[in-house]
């Protein structure tokens, strides 16, 4: 059992959720409430990581993060090491490939807040920030929670992109999914089985907790 890999995966998933939450709130809310030209294109772009093969997506990220890219060069001069094959690079990649899993449910969550209720918040004297905090977030919460759980679970399971962008450096970029692959390649099926079971247990637990919390919120609202 590769505990380092498990811990790395959990850290990666945790950071992804923390960084994506504000993005999901802002982008989801924007897409839910605003109408503008090219909205369909933006929505399609957000959904793109869902349909692209992970290797294709990983390849583009690898190019974009490389030393010759503006982002890679900036990272190199600013932090003194390259973005690819590093934990930070994995986090950035993870945030990007989880965009559809975070934004889509968040958007649905905000769309579920009835327009008159939002208007009532304005007419009660609430500023947009206060309305977000007091009215929209509590009502959009089921969608936001789904977004975060999907992101967390999906990060734990992502394989192709992580391998392309991060490689398999122990303690730096070797996640549990990659560790399982490594073990299978080394004919160590016992370790692979244990780690797979642990991953299944964690994913199941996360999703069960979400359903339980959603049901509780559902009861609170009705």
């Amino acid at each position: 059992m590769d505990w380092t890999a498990l811990w790395l995966s959990l850290r990666l998933a945790g950071w992804t959720v923390v960084l994506l939450f504000p993005v999901a709130v802002l982008a989801g809310r924007f897409l839910a409430y605003r109408r503008f030209g090219g909205k369909g294109l933006i929505e399609a772009l957000v959904m793109l990581p869902l349909v692209l093969p992970p290797t294709v997506f990983g390849f583009y990220l690898l190019v974009a993060f490389g030393r010759n890219s503006p982002l890679g060069a900036f990272w190199q001069t600013f932090f003194g090491h390259q973005l690819v094959f590093s934990f930070e690079g994995l986090v950035v990649a993870s945030v990007i490939f989880n965009l559809p899993f975070a934004i889509q449910p968040a958007q649905r969550g905000f769309e579920a807040v009835p327009t008159p209720v939002r208007e009532a918040a304005s007419c009660c004297g609430m500023s947009p920030m206060r309305s977000l905090w007091k009215v929209e977030l509590p009502l959009a919460w089921p969608g936001l929670m789904t977004a975060m759980v999907l992101t967390f679970a999906h990060t734990l399971g992502e394989f192709g992109i992580v391998l392309m962008v991060g490689g398999s450096i122990p303690g730096e970029t070797r996640t549990i999914a990659i560790a399982i692959y490594d073990r299978v390649q080394a004919f160590d099926t016992d370790s692979a089985a244990v780690m797979s079971a642990v991953l299944v247990a964690i994913s199941l637990f996360t999703i069960a907790v979400t359903y339980w919390l959603s049901a509780r919120i559902g009861r609170r609202l009705s």
Partner: peptide, 13 residues
């Protein structure tokens, strides 16, 4: 402004 909406638009939570 105080406004009473047609379907009230109360805050359900």
């Amino acid at each position: 402004v105080g406004i009473v909406f047609q379907n009230y638009a109360l805050f359900p939570h």
